[in-house]
């Protein structure tokens, strides 16, 4: 429960930051997709359900304020959350490479879906230029911010649920530092 509440607050804060503060921190004309990082991270760290829940919230926020139709954003974010939730088994806290590549892949999927729904259907077919102009820079910037966000999420997780040291009896490997 604590997790859900903290994620809710985080998403709202990140949404506010993304729509205001980060507009003035643009690099190469793009802003990082913080909400996507949160959806991907919650899916990846806590499983499919959590991923979908944050997906719904993020999508709802974006749709209600900035989209013409409600539902499209929710759909895209929920799919991202679910896909990342499927990779939950690969989650291992100390390894940053997998979650970061998950963010990149998620951002590509999000970008491609956004392009398909909002641009391709209107006859804007020059995918390569959209890929170079928006999707790629956004992914790079998002990953950089994603690293920091992930560090914060791990720190938060440790605060909320301090790791319990389990003495390992059967295997000889010890998790404790010597």
């Amino acid at each position: 429960m604590k997790r859900y509440i903290s994620m809710f607050i985080l998403i709202v804060v990140c949404f506010l930051l993304q729509t205001t503060l980060f507009q003035s921190l643009q690099i190469a004309n793009v802003i990082p997709n913080l909400l996507l990082v949160l959806v991907a991270a919650s899916g990846f760290m806590y499983g499919r359900m959590m991923g979908m829940c944050s997906g719904i919230l993020c999508g709802l926020l974006m749709d209600c304020l900035y989209s013409n139709v409600i539902g499209l954003g929710i759909l895209m974010f929920v799919i991202i959350g679910y896909i990342n939730g499927m990779a939950n088994k690969l989650y291992f806290k100390d390894d940053m490479s997998i979650p970061l590549s998950a963010i990149v892949i998620s951002d590509f999927i999000y970008g491609i879906m956004y392009y398909m729904f909002n641009f391709m259907l209107r006859g804007r077919l020059d995918f390569v230029s959209y890929f170079k102009g928006v999707i790629l820079p956004e992914a790079v910037y998002t990953v950089i911010v994603g690293v920091l966000l992930y560090k914060f999420l791990h720190w938060l997780e440790d605060k909320m649920y301090p790791p319990v040291e389990i003495p390992l009896e059967i295997t000889g490997v010890s998790t404790e530092e010597e």
């Binding site: 979908m52 013409n68 139709v69 409600i70 539902g71 499209l72 759909l75 929920v78 799919i79 679910y82």
Partner: peptide, 15 residues
């Protein structure tokens, strides 16, 4: 997920 997707598609049409 399937339920959410269906709801979303319905929402898109409704909105």
């Amino acid at each position: 997920l399937i339920v959410i997707v269906v709801i979303c598609v319905a929402l898109i049409f409704v909105s």
